[in-house]
Structure formats: C-alpha cells, structure tokens
C-alpha cells in the first residue's frame, strides 16, 4: 500500500511534465528512421543474406544507442528534484524504508522505459506480417535491453542522489553512460597493468551477445551486479544526509 503510493506518485510526476512525451516522440522518430534505413541497407547491399536474420542485430544496437542517451533525461530528476523542492524531507520522515523509496523510483523509470521501448515491438510485428520468421531471438534482445537499461537507470539514479541540480545530474550521467558504453572501443589503448578489469566493465561488450540472440549468464550477472551496486551507493549517498547535515 505504502509502496504502491510511492510508485504511483513517481509515475504521476513523470507524466505530469511534458518531458516524457517529448522524449518518447523523439525516440519514436529516430527508431523509425533506423528501422527504415537498416532494412533498406540490407535490401540494397545484403546480397544473398537472410534479411530477417541480420536485421535485428543492427536495428537493436541502433535502438539501444538512442535509449541509453535518453536515460539521463529520465533519471536526472528522481532525487535531485525532491532535494531542491524540499520534499525529500517528507519522504525521509514518513514511515517507509529507504529502499522502498529507491525501488519506487527505479520501477517508475523502468515503467517509462517499458512504454518507450515496448513500442519498438511494432517493427518485428510489421516484418512478421509480411514474412513470418522465428522470433525466439528477439526474447534475448529484449532481455538484454531490459538488463542494460536497468543498470544505466541505476547509474542515473545514483548520480541524481548526489546533487540538487537536475542538469548537473544529467550531464554526469551522460558522461558515465557513454564512457561505460564505449570503454572498450580501442582495447589496445587500455594498459595491461589495469589487469583487464577495466575492459570487463564495458557495457557494449556485455550487451552485444544479447543482440545476437545469445543469453550468457556472465553478461546477465554483469548487469544485475552493476544495478545492485549502484542501488547500494544510492542508499549510502542518501544516508549521508544524516551525518553531513544536508538535504
């Protein structure tokens, strides 16, 4: 009951502002453009290849790239806005657990993304109507997308918990997400002395197998542990008010 109230309040706040609608509109326009151009590229240049087999990997890598750049816009407000409004004091003096507050914010963000990303199911549906295909590969794409977004949303929530200024939260989240995504693009540039750990942090490397239809538990574990770790940091950062004496 209490949790549901928190969750619905978060969701209402999202849909009370125009931002979510604008983000959805821009996302839909871009993903539609990618669908058209990726399909067209395969039809024009994919000699002899099965279009349906190759389209999804390209398309979903493109779509995911738009999605993760949208994450900061959605997550920037979750804690920063409550801090600047002073409503954080209302939440943290109510008889609820800190983790309920965090999870209500996380679930609200993920609901927004489910609605935005869910609309992309239209593209396989259109192809399926023209030529039925084996869509089992798509489950792994959506699982990977969910895990990736979950981790990136948690990164954004954590950064939002550090500041009162939404734009600062957004910019730092952009930095963190793009760095994680591209960390490994030039593997040779990463010094050996870093022990290969840094290379393991690259989010793209962990997502890409899902786009190919491969579900590997190591990659699942990466996203889950990144999400949980960021959640843990958020809890600690919010607790710090108790001894720092700041909202």
């Amino acid at each position: 009951m209490r949790f549901l109230a928190l969750f619905l309040k978060e969701l209402r706040t999202f849909f009370a502002s125009p931002l979510v609608y604008i983000v959805s509109a821009v996302f839909l326009a871009l993903s539609g453009w990618y669908f058209y151009t990726d399909l067209d590229a395969l039809i024009t240049f994919g000699f002899g290849e099965s279009i349906v087999d190759h389209l999804w990997q390209r398309l979903y890598n493109d779509i995911v790239r738009i999605l993760i750049t949208v994450v900061p816009l959605i997550t920037m407000r979750v804690y920063a806005e409550e801090k600047s409004l002073g409503t954080i004091e209302l939440l943290y003096t109510a008889p609820v657990r800190d983790i309920e507050i965090l999870l209500s914010k996380y679930l609200a963000c993920m609901t927004v993304f489910a609605m935005i990303a869910g609309s992309t199911a239209l593209y396989p549906y259109l192809i399926y109507r023209v030529s039925p295909f084996d869509y089992s590969q798509l489950w792994s794409v959506y699982l990977g997308g969910f895990l990736l977004l979950s981790a990136m949303v948690m990164v954004g929530i954590f950064i939002s918990s550090l500041t009162e200024a939404q734009l600062i939260a957004a910019m730092f989240t952009y930095g963190a997400i793009l760095l994680l995504w591209n960390l490994n693009w030039n593997e040779a540039a990463i010094p050996d002395s870093w022990g290969g750990i840094v290379a393991q942090l690259c989010a793209f490397d962990h997502f890409e197998p899902f786009a190919r239809g491969v579900v590997d538990m190591r990659h699942v574990a990466y996203f889950v542990s990144l999400s949980v770790f960021m959640g843990y940091l958020t809890m600690r950062s919010m607790e710090s008010r108790e001894w720092r004496g700041r909202r």
């Binding site: 309040k9 209302l90 008889p95």
Partner: peptide, 16 residues
C-alpha cells in the same frame, strides 16, 4: 514516524 506529523521549515510540496 508512524506517530509523527511533521511540517518542515521549508514546506515539502509537489507543485504539480
């Protein structure tokens, strides 16, 4: 906190 009603110094309101 179940027993407390609290008005903070800066009234905590959601403008929307």
């Amino acid at each position: 906190r179940r027993h407390i009603g609290y008005l903070p110094e800066r009234v905590a309101l959601y403008p929307d």
